[in-house]
Design a protein around this nucleic acid. Structure first.
Lengths: 114, 114
DNA sequence: TAGGATACCCACCTTTAGGTAAGAATTGGG
DNA sequence: CCCAATTCTTACCTAAAGGTGGGTATCCTA
């Protein structure tokens, strides 16, 4: 019994570190579909506050998941897009998203029973 | 341009609702390997507090991811194991875990540069 | 009868994630 | 000269997540 197991060998740690945050998964998904500017993201995710929107975008940029491109126009324009690394993460998230689509109703039902 | 997009169609929402929590991913991974009793889990994840350990286990049980079996022995014994649903979620998490194993070092490096 | 092992339960506290609302920089147009 | 549009920025606050340290119940064994 009781084989020895290293928790780190699970591998979820680093992935969660990078994608944890209320809106990051959704933002990455949106940006992997197509580049978007700040205002677009704000409209597409109407419940996010501006503060969290930039904060999450900045962190994802720092982690190399997305890139930020500034166009020196007036009015100003900033476009965010997914990097290769970001796309690879989004791909790794797809099975999870499918699981959510498949079992979301079941979960919600079980929770409302409570 | 600017196709209309429904954020819900991403599908990550329900999945994150169920797996969010500092230790849930790791716990599910451990329990999909083999059933474990409370004390074993506590030893395998030494940084988790007892409070969070049961709290997470209880929530995962309520969500149908794991099952809890009580053996009326002395000293008492409670065994937790993954359900079908839990196993399916763990499978959906595997690509994410692989992503973490592959890019964890890269992420950590980028973060320590800061 | 005291102590040990196991699996909890609880009250309290700290930390952190996230929200609100206001304001600032840019620069072209009226 | 003032205003508008866009992308932030900042100070402050709330709520939720998680940690700490103690206590409880059970029954077996010494």
């Amino acid at each position: 019994m009781g084989k020895k197991v290293k928790p780190e060998s699970c591998g979820l740690g680093p992935a969660f570190e990078v994608i944890a945050g209320k809106w990051k998964g959704l933002l990455l998904w949106l940006l992997h579909l197509q580049p978007r500017r700040f205002g677009e993201l704000k409209r597409l995710v109407p419940d996010v506050s501006e503060k969290m929107l930039i904060q999450h975008l900045r962190e994802m940029e720092a982690d190399g998941l997305i890139r930020r491109e500034v166009f020196h126009e007036m009015p100003p324009r900033v476009e965010y897009s997914a990097t290769e690394l970001g796309i690879s993460l989004d791909n790794a998230l797809e099975p999870l998203a499918n699981w959510g689509k498949k079992h979301g109703a079941e979960i919600a039902a079980r929770r409302s029973e409570a």
